[in-house]
């Protein structure tokens, strides 16, 4: 078996079936798990009663927990997981760098900075979401401007610009922490930056769903072009691909997904890094199925990790810490496989 082969452990077609059926099952399972014990038949009944009228055999509090607590949180985890995984995959193809991640091009830092500003302004949830989006897109604009917004920018200057922009926004966040009211705002900022889905509710779900779906749809539209870009800009240009247009479109989609995820649940790392590699390992790199497979796997992964975060102990385990803890060893394992001589 080989990581870098065109083929993975399973045919992409089988992967789509497996994950397509696995995700709803995983969601159901996650909806049935939590600190408050709810029998699975009650969970199922509550979910069904949203679609068809049923005589409740469950309690009011069970219904509230499932519909107001678990459902938006699990759906949000699925969306954010799918979004971040595909955003990472798109960047890896775009930059031909297996370590590319939304954090690389400064979008996470920009979105985080916008969100922190909202907290400083004592803003409501809506303001936070809006400013995080503005921050993320602003960072992208800044990066493109730095890299030279004409057609001539190279991958290297883009990545360097991402480093610069991340540093600037990171410094702004540090400055904001410094001026924040230490009793009221600072703990909120720290908590939010840590990354958590605990604040999931329907308004956030709606926002996450709209932004992530648009981003995912855009990336799906250009799945073949991203495949071509993974051969390198030069080759893509020689093949007649409008490289700059494709890259702009992909970056906007990535920024949209990343900013939306930062806005609704803070900075969650490693999903965009680990999942695309895992997809390749399991199902190969056939481009037509790659984006849907990555999205499904990312959704399953974050739902799983978040379920652990909220149900392992009385206190919530920080989600960002958990994704890193699960992601880093997995990535180390993948890295060792990647380092094997190619074509051998």
């Amino acid at each position: 078996m080989s990581l870098s082969g065109g083929r993975g452990l399973l045919a992409p077609r089988h992967g789509l079936w497996l994950l397509g059926l696995g995700l709803p099952l995983g969601l159901l399972l996650a909806l049935g798990v939590g600190r408050f014990e709810i029998p699975l038949r009650n969970t199922l009944g509550i979910l069904l009663s949203q679609l068809i009228p049923l005589e409740p055999w469950w309690s009011d509090i069970e219904e509230r927990l499932v519909t107001w607590g678990r459902l938006p949180r699990v759906l949000l985890a699925a969306l954010i997981g799918a979004g971040l995984a595909v955003a990472g995959a798109a960047l890896q193809g775009l930059f031909r760098n297996p370590l590319a991640d939304p954090q690389l091009i400064g979008v996470s830092a920009g979105a985080a900075c916008g969100g922190v500003l909202a907290i400083l302004l004592d803003g409501s949830g809506t303001l936070l979401v809006v400013l995080a989006l503005i921050g993320g897109l602003g960072a992208l604009y800044f990066v493109r401007w730095l890299a030279g917004s004409g057609g001539g920018e190279s991958v290297l200057t883009l990545i360097l610009a991402g480093v610069v922009v991340s540093a600037v926004f990171g410094a702004l966040v540090a400055l904001a922490k410094f001026v924040a009211d230490p009793q009221n705002q600072l703990p909120t900022i720290v908590f939010w930056l840590m990354g958590s889905l605990a604040g999931a509710d329907y308004p956030r779900l709606l926002l996450g769903a709209v932004a992530t779906s648009i981003g995912l749809f855009m990336l799906w539209l250009i799945r073949f072009q991203l495949h071509v870009m993974s051969l390198g800009e030069d080759d893509a240009r020689a093949l007649g691909l409008p490289v700059t247009r494709v890259r702009t479109l992909a970056l906007i989609a990535v920024a949209l997904i990343t900013a939306a995820s930062v806005a609704v649940c803070g900075v969650i790392g490693w999903v965009g890094l680990v999942i695309p590699h895992l997809t390749r390992l399991l199902f190969g790199a056939h481009f037509a199925a790659f984006i849907p497979l990555t999205a499904l796997l990312g959704a399953l992964y974050l739902v799983g990790v978040d379920t652990l975060a909220r149900s392992l102990s009385d206190a919530e385990i920080p989600l960002g810490a958990l994704t890193a803890l699960v992601g880093a060893p997995m990535f180390a394992y993948l890295l060792r496989r990647l380092r094997r001589p190619e074509g051998a």
Binding site: G5, Q92, G93, P98, H227, S230, D235, F287
Partner: peptide, 13 residues
């Protein structure tokens, strides 16, 4: 030469 970021099948190439 080409140096694809990730391996792909000959048909996809």
């Amino acid at each position: 030469f080409i140096t694809p970021g990730f391996d792909m099948s000959a048909l996809d190439l």
